[in-house]
């Protein structure tokens, strides 16, 4: 990509030709194997009903199971993204704080999270820490005390309210996890601002908080934005892992559908495509954002 991006002449070099040949050969081999070696009756026609389906009870079109899962994935990612940004910013500021105490706290947090596999962390959070937080906040009682209208209204944002406690614990789990990475982005953003800025602000009589708020963060924010947006894409991808704690997001729904239909080939392919479309669109948006920022 780096080499001559402006010249786009379709000249077929020997390397091009050989690569295309190899690719075509591989593709042909796979198709040949799939058609002959694999004793599997493809049934793609079962898929559409899981994307969009006609509900015979209410006589309306609605999202199918997989689409519902995708919507939950988006909701989950959005909320944990917001929570993770807040927590991550606080921890990032702690990381560069003059107080050794704050730095130790933040370093422990970031170090622990970044060096443990997400799968293991999710089990620990879900069974161990999630419960404590839930009990502390009295989430259960809160959900049961809601009126039906409020429940319906809130379900637009959080999914079905009777599953809210699980949704929340998945959300917190994911946010705690991603916040460690955001903290590092924030730290790098702040450290990328030259010390001259600090010295100038001090000379103007600003204290540390004022400098941070009015001088450093606005500039750092601009440099951090692409990285933060990239982290959001990671959140979408990592949200697949929370399927192991039974949140009804895309991966979980896919497994449920496979349990009843046994159509794993078609469904895993569809799910892969769905994730790809979602994250690829986000990636394109990030790249656009990056370009706009660079131009300014």
């Amino acid at each position: 990509m780096k080499t001559q991006p402006h010249k786009r002449n379709l000249r077929i070099s020997p390397l091009d030709a050989s690569i295309i040949l190899v690719l075509a050969g591989m593709l042909g081999y796979v198709i040949f194997k799939a058609a002959t070696g694999l004793n599997y009756h493809w049934k793609w026609e079962v898929i559409p009903q899981y994307l969009l389906r006609f509900n015979t009870n209410t006589q309306t079109w609605g999202p199918g199971l997989l689409t519902q899962g995708l919507i939950t994935t988006i909701k989950l990612s959005l909320w944990s993204g917001i929570l993770a940004t807040i927590l991550g910013t606080v921890m990032g500021l702690f990381r560069v704080s003059p107080s050794l105490f704050k730095r130790q706290i933040a370093t422990t947090y970031v170090g622990l999270i970044r060096n443990t596999p997400p799968l293991v962390l999710i089990f620990i959070f879900y069974f161990f820490i999630g419960d404590q937080i839930m009990a502390l906040l009295h989430i259960d009682d809160f959900v049961y005390s809601l009126s039906n209208e409020t429940k319906e209204f809130m379900s637009i944002f959080f999914g079905p309210m009777n599953r809210f406690p699980q949704f929340l614990s998945a959300l917190i789990t994911l946010a705690l996890f991603e916040a460690a990475y955001i903290a590092e982005i924030v730290r790098a953003g702040i450290e990328s601002i030259e010390t001259g800025q600090w010295e100038a602000s001090t000379a103007l009589g600003m204290n540390r908080t004022q400098t941070m708020l009015h001088v450093i963060l606005p500039q750092a924010m601009q440099r951090m934005l692409p990285a933060l947006a990239g982290q959001f894409i990671s959140i979408i991808k990592d949200s697949a892992i929370v399927s192991v704690i039974s949140i009804e997001e895309l991966t979980f729904q896919a497994q449920q559908v496979i349990t009843t239909t046994y159509r794993s080939f078609e469904i895993w392919t569809t799910v892969l495509v769905m994730y790809f479309i979602l994250t690829f669109m986000c990636s394109l948006a990030v790249r656009k954002l990056e370009l706009t920022l660079r131009r300014n």
Partner: peptide, 22 residues
């Protein structure tokens, strides 16, 4: 008191599974 019983289960056909409407 809560007015709701919470039931834990996992999908095992035909003990518990999802129908077409979810």
């Amino acid at each position: 008191q809560r007015g709701t019983i919470k039931v834990g289960f996992d999908t095992f056909k035909p003990w518990a599974m999802k129908d077409k409407d979810g």
